[in-house]
């Protein structure tokens, strides 16, 4: 009986400690995946394959700068190279944590700076299987996190949305690498507990001391579609001036930062 009590006591003490740990783990994972360095640049190539094996490619250069306190607001600049019909199109996002993002699209053939209404964050980014939110990050405050278990390599965290209206999933399970805090696999489950969507980190490179996922995939298990995303030419702390993320450079791309 004494042993049972001791165990119960241990569990009671352990529970709050766990609760704190999971927040820390999730925050570290968020930082590792989306907030490395003060700014960053990468070449991104997407290979989108549908259920019938038809392929489409997207190629763009992405610039990022953290502008908010801690891991919060960021600005993104995207310059599209591929496919040919969108070559030269630029896209600007001011990401606000806890509020709608500001987005602008520049169409060079019309010299038009179009402001884009905030969309559901969980809709496709440029027609791929990645969502806007997968590319720019999901607010850690939007879910309730629970540490399911700790394995040799991973913290396994289950996250359930606080507001179920804003997410198509019932919960997702994240395998966070214990030393780098990079999410290695994310599995999305529907209300009946079926896994229908899966993110996998395929390759990690250490760039300027920051472990970085340089190849990953997102699979839609229902439709059979899959997107492989490859990062190359990754560079952190390039000293990007904040005014890059403005109408001026939307209209006239900052070629020295895109090379």
């Amino acid at each position: 009986m004494k042993q049972v009590l001791a165990l119960a006591a241990a569990l009671l003490i352990a529970a709050p400690a766990f609760a704190q740990d999971v927040t820390e783990i999730v925050n570290k994972a968020n930082a590792a995946a989306y907030y490395q360095g003060e700014d960053g640049r990468a070449r991104v190539d997407m290979l989108i394959t549908d259920d019938q094996g038809r392929e489409r490619k997207r190629g763009f250069t992405i610039l990022r700068k953290d502008t908010g306190e801690g891991d919060s607001d960021q600005k993104f600049y995207v310059y599209f190279n591929q496919p040919a019909d969108v070559s030269g199109t630029t896209f600007l996002v001011w990401k606000h944590v806890g509020a709608d993002d500001d987005r602008w699209l520049y169409l060079p053939a019309l010299d038009l700076v179009k402001r884009i209404a905030a969309s559901d964050e969980r809709t496709s980014f440029v027609g791929s299987n990645f969502f806007y939110e997968d590319v720019s990050g999901r607010g850690t405050e939007e879910d309730v996190h629970e540490l399911l278990e700790t394995t040799d390599n991973y913290y396994v965290v289950k996250s359930t949305p606080k507001n179920t209206d804003t997410a198509e999933f019932a919960y997702y399970k994240n395998y966070i690498h214990k030393t780098t805090f990079l999410p290695v696999k994310t599995e999305y489950y529907d209300a009946s507990g079926n896994k229908y969507r899966e993110y996998t980190a395929l390759k990690v490179d250490t760039v300027q001391g920051h472990p970085t996922v340089t190849q990953s995939s997102m699979e839609d298990l229902r439709s059979g579609g899959k997107t492989v995303l490859s990062y190359s030419d990754v560079e952190y702390d390039t000293g990007l001036p904040e005014d890059i993320f403005s109408e001026r450079f939307l209209r006239t791309p900052p070629r020295e930062h895109l090379r």
């Binding site: 394995t151 390599n153 991973y154 396994v156 395998y175 690498h177 780098t180 990079l182 290695v184 696999k185 996998t200 980190a201 395929l202 390759k203 990690v204 490179d205 250490t206 472990p211 996922v213 340089t214 190849q215």
Partner: peptide
Amino acid sequence: EPALPAGL
């Protein structure tokens, strides 16, 4: 548990 990616 998932396999570790290349690089990890």
